[in-house]
Write a protein that binds this DNA or RNA. Structure first.
Length: 287
DNA sequence: TTCTTTGTTCCGGA
DNA sequence: GTCCGGAACAAAGA
């Protein structure tokens, strides 16, 4: 479920551990990720120093002197550090809810500071792509992206302009990466619940009060999640083998048939499919 | 055995 | 040309 907050948390950890380190070895067990990893991949990266690591939407961007490595975790990709050997993986990993099978360890990166980074991906929808120092906005994947949710350009006027000639449902709009980038199924459900807006509403039908509320809540909930995840990273022992930290804060996702978690509301949470994705909403306070 | 889950791209129909 | 949403992709757990 890596959406923007999870990727941001991964990025922060990577920055802490890998800036100015050199890749000294790469082992690829399975090249068939979403896009096949070409044979020259390792050769192009070995000996290169990581100068900068950034995030755009759900993409991780590693900057080298002459190359840019673009990474996407897909649906189930995880980056996990291990210092000594794989048996220690559960003790040193910073990611959440780890239950990693070795057979899904597809890539190993070894660094000159002794760290080893493992890319584990059950569904193999993630990818790693190398670019020749192109400008970031020339990369196809990034070109199509809408504004970051935290940016000032993600505002009432932008929302109104984008939706005025569209028929799309608000739930789908929030997950449309060309509208706003980084929100997936979970946070779209949560943001709509928080804003008391029903997921099936036409995005065009929202009034300016609702739009402002929704935009503010999106920014709030993403920041809150980053904060929570970030604080759990500090204590590695707490993350080891423990259930995910994010789902503890879900107010509507996965809560079908339960009572609405809003104290002042007596409604019930329903689960429906919207464009093939599970959508949860309260029949009483979300209108 | 079948359904569900995740993000993105591709493609058909309106 | 644009917009919308279904299908496909992989694998595992219920």
């Amino acid at each position: 479920m890596p959406e923007l907050p999870e990727i941001e948390i991964i990025k922060k950890s990577l920055v802490k551990m890998l800036i100015n380190t050199k890749i000294i070895k790469i082992k690829i067990n399975n090249r068939n990720l979403r896009y096949k990893i070409p044979p020259q991949f390792s050769k192009n990266l070995i000996g290169q120093k990581i100068l900068k690591i950034s995030r755009r939407s759900k993409y991780l961007i590693f900057h080298f002197k002459k190359k840019i490595l673009l990474a996407h975790m897909g649906m189930s990709g995880k980056l996990v550090f291990t210092k000594l050997n794989e048996k220690k993986i559960y003790k040193t990993s910073f990611y959440y809810n780890l239950n990693l099978l070795k057979k899904h360890n597809h890539i190993y990166f070894k660094f000159n500071n002794g760290l080893k980074l493992i890319y584990n991906d059950v569904r193999r929808f993630g990818f790693f792509k190398l670019y020749n120092n192109e400008k970031l906005n020339k990369i196809n994947f990034l070109k199509k992206l809408g504004p970051e949710p935290f940016s000032k350009s993600f505002n009432l006027i932008y929302f109104t302009n984008f939706t005025k000639n569209r028929e799309t449902k608000i739930k789908n709009l929030l997950m449309d990466q060309s509208f706003v980038s980084g929100i997936g199924n979970i946070y779209s459900n949560e943001a709509l619940f928080m804003s008391k807006i029903a997921p099936l509403r036409k995005s065009r039908s929202l009034n300016s009060v609702e739009i402002k509320r929704l935009i503010l809540n999106i920014k709030k909930i993403l920041k809150f999640s980053i904060l929570k995840g970030g604080s759990s990273i500090k204590d590695f022992k707490n993350t080891a083998g423990k259930k995910g930290v994010f789902q503890e804060f879900f107010n509507v996702y996965g809560r079908n048939n339960k009572k609405c978690s809003r104290i002042s509301c007596n409604g019930k949470i329903y689960k429906i499919k919207i464009s093939g994705r599970s959508s949860y909403y309260c029949d009483s306070c979300q209108t």
